[in-house]
Computed example of a mutant assay.
Amino acid sequence: MGGFTDGFAEANGQRIAFSLGGSGPPLLLLHGFPQTRALWWRVAPVLADRFTVVTADLRGYGGSSKPEGAEHYTFREMGNDMFGLMSGLGFDRFHLAGHDRGARTGYRMALDDEARLMSLTLMDIVSTDHLLDPLHRNVATAYYHWFFLAQPKPFPETLILADPDYFFESCLLGWGGARLSDFAVDQLAAYREAWRDPDTVGAMCDDYRATLKHDFAMDRDEAGRTLTLPAHVLYGADGAMARAYDVPATWRGRLCEMDARALPGGHFFIDTAPEATAEALLGLLS
């Protein structure tokens, strides 16, 4: 990514891969499943004109370390990685924008230490507890991977590694509004390189195992809390979440000061509409 420096940082006992560029207030961008920080390649340079942008691979993904065991993949542990990364870079407070698993990590970070976040932008999610309980059958059909990946090792890993491109590309195309040709060639190549690694596949399964074993209960126990920081909700107009929920309504009561916007495309609107995503973020964060 032009104008950005790649590096590794020791944070919370993990080795976290990151990229850093730009100038201005610090902004952390977090990707989701089944991607890496390459998600931001066409968005981060635009934001870097007005922000010091940090993109990072969540633990288990991309170039970051991959401990074994679901207990290592709670959103709290992932969030502590990111707090450690930003502290190590000299940023005590920062803006945070996350997509998918990155958004869930960001929400947990706000619940755990709201004062450190200047703002929070959640992209194409409803809260974990709201999605799982009650679980609508159309959501279970679209997001079946939550339950497949959470099955005991090595069942999902064995099936996925028989043809990882087939499985993960079906995920990219299965949640609304995307064709494979909508993804930039270089970004798709980066995703494929990452998800062909058996350790990454195992880590992603542990990520989803942790959601059912640990994260659901943590989020349910704090469902009554209202965060008061400036918050933004972006979602794909044609995605599975928008078809199943009134996405902004699911966050009312949890986010006090909230601006919500639908963007063109499905779940992966950052890949398929990077210009619109960058424009929306600049408008919201400014």
Rank of each mutant, 00 (worst) to 15 (best):
L47Q: 01
R220P: 08
M258Q: 05
L135H: 02
D207F: 12
I16M: 05
Y143L: 12
L284M: 11
R42Y: 06
L30G: 03
P25S: 15
D182W: 05
M258T: 07
R243C: 06
D246E: 15
K66I: 00
T5F: 15
H31W: 06
E279I: 05
D221P: 08
L180G: 06
F94L: 14
R261H: 06
G62Y: 03
T272N: 01
I125Y: 00
G7P: 10
T36F: 04
R76C: 12
M86N: 05
Q187V: 15
L281Y: 09
M109E: 02
A38K: 15
L117D: 03
D199C: 05
T128V: 06
T211Y: 15
A48L: 07
M86P: 02
D49I: 08
R50H: 14
L58D: 15
F147T: 07
A210S: 03
Y144A: 09
M86D: 09
G13P: 13
P248H: 03
E77W: 06
F268A: 04
P45H: 11
N138Y: 06
L281F: 06
A217H: 14
R179E: 11
W146S: 04
S127R: 14
L285P: 10
W251F: 14
V43E: 11
F155E: 13
A190R: 15
R116A: 10
D124W: 02
E222W: 11
L29T: 07
A110E: 10
A262M: 05
V43R: 06
C205Q: 10
L159I: 12
R254F: 13
Y144V: 01
V233L: 13
D238E: 14
V54M: 08
Y143P: 05
G266C: 00
S87I: 03
F4D: 13
R225C: 07
L227K: 03
R37L: 11
A244V: 09
P26L: 02
Y73K: 00
W146Y: 12
L172W: 01
A194W: 00
T121Y: 01
A210F: 07
G177C: 03
A273R: 04
G69V: 05
F269Y: 15
E68C: 11
K153T: 12
M82E: 15
M204C: 07
A194T: 08
L173T: 04
L159P: 14
P67M: 01
F18R: 12
K213L: 13
A189E: 07
G22C: 07
Y245L: 10
A38D: 11
